[in-house]
Amino acid sequence: MSFLLGHFNYLIVVFLMMGGLWITFSSRNYIKRMIGLALFQTSVGLFYISLGKVAGGTAAIVLDKTSKAGEALNAHLSPDYVARAGVDGVVYSNPLPHVLILTAIVVGVATLAVGLAIAVRVREAYGTVEAGEIAELDRTEAGPRA
């Protein structure tokens, strides 16, 4: 139980990821699929950020440990831990995953935009965004040009 509680962030990630995948695969509506996909990608964002989080750490902006904020931060951390995990006496979270996931979010948004744009075009060409109906239309009629 403590293992699960200790890793609750990963549990959330897994839950979101599976939920997103499930929605993507099981929905027949193109918009819903995109929603599922967005959820799936978001879970990865969460995964990266929780990877980079250092317990008790602050944002990776240079901070003087003697400043007020620095003292407040160190107040609820043991000095041993600060000495072990900190840089210049302050504990920071790892900035790299944050930066990475910022890029991934941009990529994700672009994908989402393209996907939704295609859905709009599908709607124009087929008059529907339901996968089953589209397959049916492809089977039954040669179809006008998009």
């Binding site: 990821m17 995948l21 993507t24 193109y30 699929r33 996909l37 799936f40 990608q41 990865v44 995964f47 990266y48 990877l51 995953p97 991934a104 990529v107 994908t111 393209v114 996907g115 295609i118 859905a119 075009r121 599908v122 060409a125 087929y126 996968a131 589209i134 397959a135 492809d138 179809g143 006008p144 040009r145 998009a146």
Partner: peptide, 29 residues
């Protein structure tokens, strides 16, 4: 394109491709 069947094809490719890429990112993580 001129063929409307390309649209669902592109959409399916997008979904599968994005899932593939996201798996890759997870792995890299």
């Amino acid at each position: 394109g001129v063929d409307r069947r390309a649209l669902p094809a592109a959409f399916n490719y997008l979904v599968m491709g994005t899932i593939g890429a996201t798996f890759f990112v997870i792995g890299v993580g």
